[in-house]
Amino acid sequence: MNNLSLTLISIGLTIAVYLGAKWLSVRVASPFTTPVLTATVVIITILHFMGVSYEQYTLAKDWMTFLLGPATVALAVPMYQNRQVIMENLIPALFGLSIGTISTIISAVWFSKALGLSETIQATSAVKAVTTPVAIETVTLVGGDPALAAAFVVIAGVFGAILAPMILTLTKISDPFSRGLGIGTISHVIGTTQAVREGPIQGAVSSMAMGCAAILTSVILPWLYPLIQL
């Protein structure tokens, strides 16, 4: 099988599995049936038994990753529809988002350092909470690995989508704006898909938080990361 055929089959398989995962998430509403989580597990399993390596799947992945940019921009629609609510709470939201973003970067790097992980992994972990296109570009500014950054982003997003709603509920945080802000700040697009399922305000605020967190990370990471390493 040539590379083009394998790439097209991989893309078709990925789309089919994701549609199946999305159908499952509608039938069984749970953070554990988040489409990205279930689709990832199924795709990895299928590729393993097909004997398709990650390197062989990379071209298909690159084609699909290219579409992340337009997909991310599309999240501006619910933000616009709920712009009045966002503007009314903009100042406290930006303050909380800034604290959350900075805390996420510092805790990720310090935790990696405490485990004795390499400097490359420490740098890469700093961008785990922002969306993939931004993470891939930003991580190079601090000497991280773009490919590893993409993996970290997916892992952080999946765990954020699963655990964040549960933690917010356990801590009795029920305000839609607060829930959307927390989920979007720590788990970018994947978490935002879960926030959208909770309600339009949660989805809109999560989209805003995700975008602002990406911008803030891009701006502060080049000077914050060296300070963390001192």
Rank of each mutant, 00 (worst) to 15 (best):
T132W: 01
I136H: 09
G180H: 11
S125G: 10
L97C: 05
E88H: 13
P165F: 08
T140Y: 06
T104P: 00
T131F: 02
E137W: 00
I99P: 03
T171D: 09
K172R: 15
G160L: 02
F159Q: 07
W110L: 15
G116P: 03
L94V: 13
L168I: 08
M166P: 00
A151I: 15
A126N: 07
I173R: 14
V130A: 08
F111P: 02
A129W: 04
G160P: 04
V109K: 03
I99F: 11
D145L: 12
Q84V: 11
L141Y: 09
I91M: 12
A135Y: 03
T120L: 08
S112E: 00
M87T: 13
I121D: 02
P133A: 05
S125C: 12
I106Y: 00
A150L: 03
M87W: 11
V130F: 08
G116T: 02
N89S: 13
A150V: 01
V85E: 14
V142E: 09
K113C: 01
L117K: 02
S178G: 11
I99H: 01
P176N: 10
I102R: 01
T140F: 04
I162Y: 07
K113N: 14
A123W: 00
A156N: 12
Q122E: 14
I102L: 10
T138C: 07
L148M: 14
G143S: 06
T171P: 07
A161N: 09
V109P: 04
V158A: 08
Q122T: 02
L90Q: 04
L94H: 06
T104D: 02
Q122P: 05
L90C: 06
G100C: 05
L97D: 09
S125V: 03
T120P: 02
N89T: 13
A123E: 04
T101S: 12
V109G: 04
Q122G: 12
V85R: 13
S107M: 10
I167M: 14
T124P: 04
I102H: 07
E137M: 10
K172Q: 14
S174R: 13
A126P: 05
F95W: 08
A156L: 01
A151Q: 12
L90M: 13
F111Y: 13
S98F: 03
M166N: 05
L163H: 08
I106M: 05
G96H: 04
V153Q: 11
V158D: 11
G143M: 05
V158F: 06
G100L: 04
F177D: 07
K113I: 11
P133Q: 05
A114W: 10
E137H: 08
S178W: 06
I105N: 08
I155M: 14
T101D: 07
W110T: 12
G100D: 09
V142T: 07
A156D: 06
G157C: 06
I121C: 01
K128P: 02
T138W: 06
L117H: 07
P146H: 10
A123Y: 03
P146S: 09
A108P: 07
I105K: 05
A123D: 05
A126V: 04
I173W: 10
L168G: 09
A108D: 09
I136C: 07
S103Q: 03
L141K: 15
T124W: 03
F95N: 02
Q84S: 11
T169N: 15
T140D: 12
